[in-house]
């Protein structure tokens, strides 16, 4: 049984709309990507705005911090991917390889490479360490927009609007594509790396076995509408979390697929969420507001 979470902190980001909220590696900071073309770095625990990164020419759609928290990679609908220096706030590199707006971006484990997915149906690998300006590799398997990317030490998981989930395994040298039958709005992986959780546009979240591609569980109850809802798995891999178009956040038990908790964020759809990597914290973004959920500490 999970402790009941409650709203610890509410941050008004003043970014028009927060497109994505992301914890950093250790969960002490978070990034918000705004429709105001800026990325903001926060300390969500004390509502502190640390820095604003401006340089994108259009809405920032996704961002990720590097493993050493020295760099930020962000992507925008201005078709570019920008690597930022955290401390100076200056863009270090700007990659202009995509033909359309870039929807998602992730670092690899060592933050030596950035992987970005775009509306142009491609996934590009960017060498962040070298000065190379072109993508190292482009994956052109998807037939529609890439909605999300997950990168592990040797795999790249992409979800696409073409109803396919694609898993690129570098060790084996194979690409596994699973046809899901519904638009996948977001794909995440469990921490053990054995399952992937797909948010589907049919108001369900599906849990798949990575090796066989079999459906393990389906979670429903939330409303998807036309939003690219994100999902997450809690730090213990015990629950699946997802936002809803109705403004709630659903917690499902991974095994029993029963809804254990429902957090009410507001009236507006909770599109983006990010779970703390180690602790029981959850960041959710709805419109201009970011809420940090967690177990309030007992004060003596």
């Amino acid at each position: 049984m999970v402790e009941q979470l409650s709203n610890i902190v509410t941050i008004k980001c003043k970014q028009q709309v927060v497109r994505a909220v992301r914890f950093n590696v250790d969960g002490s900071y978070c990034l918000t990507c705004g429709a105001d073309k800026k990325i903001k770095l926060w300390n969500p625990h004390n509502q502190l705005l640390l820095k604003t990164y401006g340089g994108h020419a259009n809405e920032v759609l996704d961002a990720a911090g590097s493993c050493d928290s020295s760099h930020i990679i962000s992507c925008s609908s201005d078709k570019s991917v920008i690597l930022w220096d955290v401390t100076t706030g200056q863009p270090v590199r700007r990659y202009r390889g995509h033909a359309s707006s870039v929807t998602c971006v992730k670092f690899n484990e060592e933050s030596t490479m950035a992987v970005s997915g775009s509306v142009d149906n491609t996934v590009s690998f960017w060498d962040v360490v070298s000065r190379r300006q072109e993508p190292v590799q482009i994956l052109k398997d998807a037939k529609d927009t890439i909605t999300s990317i997950q990168v592990t030490d040797h795999e790249v998981l992409t979800s696409s609007v073409d109803c396919h989930m694609r898993l690129y395994d570098m060790r084996v040298g194979k690409m596994f594509s699973d046809y899901i039958g519904h638009i996948i709005t977001y794909a995440s992986m469990t921490h053990d790396g054995q399952c992937y959780v797909l948010s589907c546009a049919d108001n369900t979240i599906k849990l798949f076995d990575k090796d066989s591609g079999e459906l393990l569980n389906t979670f429903s109850g939330h409303e998807c509408k036309d939003f690219l809802l994100e999902n997450s798995v809690n730090e213990k891999d015990s629950h699946i979390i997802s936002g809803s178009a109705t403004g709630e956040i659903f917690y499902w038990d991974l095994v029993s697929s029963s809804c254990t908790q429902k957090l009410v964020h507001g009236k507006r759809p909770v599109v983006s969420l990010s779970h703390h990597p180690t602790d029981n914290y959850l960041l959710t973004a709805s419109e201009d507001e970011v809420v940090l959920w967690g177990v309030p500490k007992m004060e003596e």
Binding site: E109, M113, H154, M170, M175, S177, D178, S212, G213, L215
Partner: peptide
């Protein structure tokens, strides 16, 4: 879902990608 919906295709990561991911190059 399972074997029917799954499709396996050969995919070859670039040498540099392998290098950066610390994965031995295949083949």
């Amino acid at each position: 879902y399972g074997t029917i919906t799954r499709k396996e295709t050969k995919w070859r990561p670039e040498a540099l990608v392998c290098k950066r991911f610390n994965v031995p190059e295949i083949g």
